[in-house]
Computed example of a mutant assay.
Amino acid sequence: MTTAMSVPSRRKIFAFVVAALIVAAGIGWIVTQTSAQASEDTVLIHTGEATHAFKVEVVDTDAARARGLMFRQELAPNAGMLFDFLAERPASFWMENTFIPLDMIFARANGEIVRVHANAIPHDRTPIPSGEPVRFVLEIPGGRAAELGIEAGDTLEHPRATAE
């Protein structure tokens, strides 16, 4: 014997299925956007004394660069984010909506580090300029550059950095 389902019950099931599809589509969109905006890679920094490896997210779109490391609550000691502007240009950062102190390492297209800004202050809106045209900015945990002896004149190595 088959019983017919009431109209309100069908509507509830239909609403549940539609809601589930919307949630699934939203999750798929988030995964796609995250994948499209950042890829994981390794950056090597060569100082006069040693070579230091950082696992980084590479961001090279306007949207991904605008978000950067905002809202992150922690960053592993050998982790970071590599901003690739795809060509040398003046760059400027600020720390609004950033919860952790960061060192910013500014580098030319060939990987030569031209400036290190140490311990950018969380939530500070003061601009942090590159000082000259750069292609890359590597953000790492605040204090790590000094701890590892990273300074202007050192070299950032990554497949995107090109020799002149």
Rank of each mutant, 00 (worst) to 15 (best):
E151R: 15
F99W: 12
R65S: 00
L138F: 06
R11A: 10
N110G: 06
F85T: 01
E49N: 10
S9Y: 08
P8R: 10
Q73D: 14
M95E: 01
H123L: 14
R72I: 04
R72Q: 11
M70W: 01
S9W: 10
E139T: 00
G48S: 09
S92T: 12
A76G: 11
V43Y: 05
A63F: 09
L86V: 05
E157T: 11
A79P: 12
T51M: 10
R72D: 05
A19P: 14
V58Q: 03
T42K: 12
V134R: 02
A163M: 14
A79T: 02
P122C: 04
G80R: 01
E112G: 09
A19K: 07
P90G: 12
F93L: 11
A107P: 11
I128N: 02
A24G: 14
A118M: 02
T47R: 10
R89I: 01
P141Q: 06
S9L: 15
L82P: 09
V59E: 06
G48Y: 00
S39A: 08
T126S: 13
S92V: 09
F106R: 00
R67W: 06
G26Y: 07
E57R: 01
M81T: 00
E132H: 04
A118L: 08
A36L: 14
A76P: 04
P8E: 12
T155N: 04
R144C: 00
M5H: 07
L69Y: 09
D60P: 03
P90D: 15
V59P: 12
G149P: 12
A63V: 06
D124M: 05
S35D: 15
P8H: 11
G149F: 07
V59D: 08
T42C: 06
L156C: 03
P129M: 10
T32W: 15
V116R: 03
G131D: 12
I128A: 03
P141C: 01
G68H: 08
R115F: 08
K55V: 10
F99D: 15
T61W: 05
M95C: 01
A36V: 01
V7P: 09
L82S: 04
V56N: 07
V23G: 10
A53F: 01
A91E: 09
S35I: 03
K12I: 07
A19M: 14
I140K: 05
D84T: 00
P159C: 07
F106Y: 11
D103E: 01
G142H: 02
E40A: 12
L21V: 12
A66W: 07
H52A: 12
E132M: 14
E139Q: 03
A38T: 03
R115P: 09
F14V: 08
P8S: 11
E88S: 06
S92G: 09
T32D: 15
V134A: 03
I22F: 10
M70D: 01
L86S: 15
E132I: 02
L44N: 08
V114Q: 11
G153E: 09
L86F: 05
H158Y: 12
D60R: 13
A66N: 14
R160Q: 08
